[in-house]
C-alpha cells in the first residue's frame, strides 16, 4: 500500500489530538453528548491512522483479543455489584441518597470500560481485514 508523504505528515500531526478528543468524549459522557460507544469509535480511528504512519509494523492481535474479553468480564462484574449493595442487578451500585456528583462516578467508570471495549473491537475488525489484504 503506497500513501503520499503529505498524508503521512498530517497524520503524525493529528494522531495525538484524535486520541485526546476520544478520551474527552468518553470521560465527559455524562455531561455532554457522547459516551462510551462514540468515544471508542473515535479512538479506533486514531489507531487506523497509525496504519498510515507505520505500514510495515507488525501488530500483535492476540493481546487485543484477550483485552477485549477481560474488559467485557469487568463490565459484567461492575454491573453486578449492585446485587450486593441494593438488591437489584444491573443498576448503579451507589445509593440513591448520595450527592449527584458522587453518583456520576459510576457512569464515568462504566463509560471508560465500554469505550476501551468498543475501541478494541473496532481495531480488531479492521486490522484483521488489513492483515488479510496484505
Amino acid at each position: 500500500m503506497k500513501t503520499s508523504d503529505i498524508l503521512i505528515c498530517i497524520s503524525r500531526l493529528l494522531f495525538p489530538f484524535i486520541l485526546l478528543y476520544g478520551f474527552y468524549i468518553i470521560i465527559n459522557g455524562h455531561l455532554t453528548p457522547g459516551g462510551g460507544f462514540q468515544g471508542g469509535a473515535i479512538l479506533a480511528t486514531a489507531i487506523l491512522i497509525s496504519y498510515f504512519i507505520y505500514p510495515e509494523k507488525i501488530r500483535d492481535l492476540n493481546l487485543l483479543i484477550k483485552l477485549e474479553k477481560y474488559v467485557f468480564m469487568v463490565i459484567l462484574i461492575i454491573a453486578s455489584i449492585s446485587l450486593f449493595t441494593k438488591g437489584e442487578i444491573f443498576t448503579s451500585f451507589i445509593s440513591i441518597e448520595k450527592s449527584n456528583s458522587f453518583k456520576s462516578l459510576f457512569l464515568i467508570i462504566l463509560n471508560l470500560f465500554i469505550g476501551i471495549k468498543v475501541s478494541t473491537g473496532l481495531i480488531l475488525i479492521f486490522s484483521t481485514f488489513i492483515e488479510e489484504g496484505k
Binding site: 459522557g29 455531561l31 459516551g35 448503579s92 450527592s99 463509560n111
Partner: peptide
Amino acid sequence: DTGSKNIVTGIYLDYRLFDSIFEA
C-alpha cells in the same frame, strides 16, 4: 436519580443497563 446531566447516558447506563450489556 443517576447524577447524569445527559439524559441519554442516564438511560443507557442506569435505567436500561441490561440492554446496554447485550449491546456490548
